[in-house]
Amino acid sequence: MPTTVSRLPSLIVKALLVRGTAVWLFVRFMAAVVIAAAKEQGLDVGHELVPVWVLLTAPALVLIDLHRRKEITLLHNLGVNTRFAVAVGSVPTLFLEAAVVVALAVRA
């Protein structure tokens, strides 16, 4: 009988979540740097677009990180497709970015 794989091992999930958090921090930091630099030049880059930029950039960076670590074939051999792994790695971005948006809205 063919073996069936339906989910990621918890250790890999943990690693993807930790890396996803690091990716979010990096993207947020880069956004802050870009906004600060733009302000210095007297430009308004539009703060409201930052969450969109973060949500689009983070999954791409998670994917790049998986390729950089050469983990794609390993994941595939476990029956996990790349899209699913990227989705798991993007979960921290989704939650943390939502938290930031809510926090900023409450403060305003």
């Binding site: 063919p2 073996t3 069936t4 794989v5 339906s6 250790l11 890999i12 690693a15 670590r69 050469k70 983990e71 074939t73 390993l74 994941l75 595939h76 051999n77 476990l78 029956g79 996990v80 497709n81 790349t82």
Partner: peptide, 24 residues
């Protein structure tokens, strides 16, 4: 076909290098 979908049905592919991750 993708390796992930075939692996769920019992295929395993060992490439000529870098199957294992340095993180584990």
């Amino acid at each position: 076909p993708t390796l992930a979908s075939l692996a769920r049905e019992g295929l395993c592919f060992v490439p000529d290098h870098d199957l294992l991750s340095s993180a584990f």
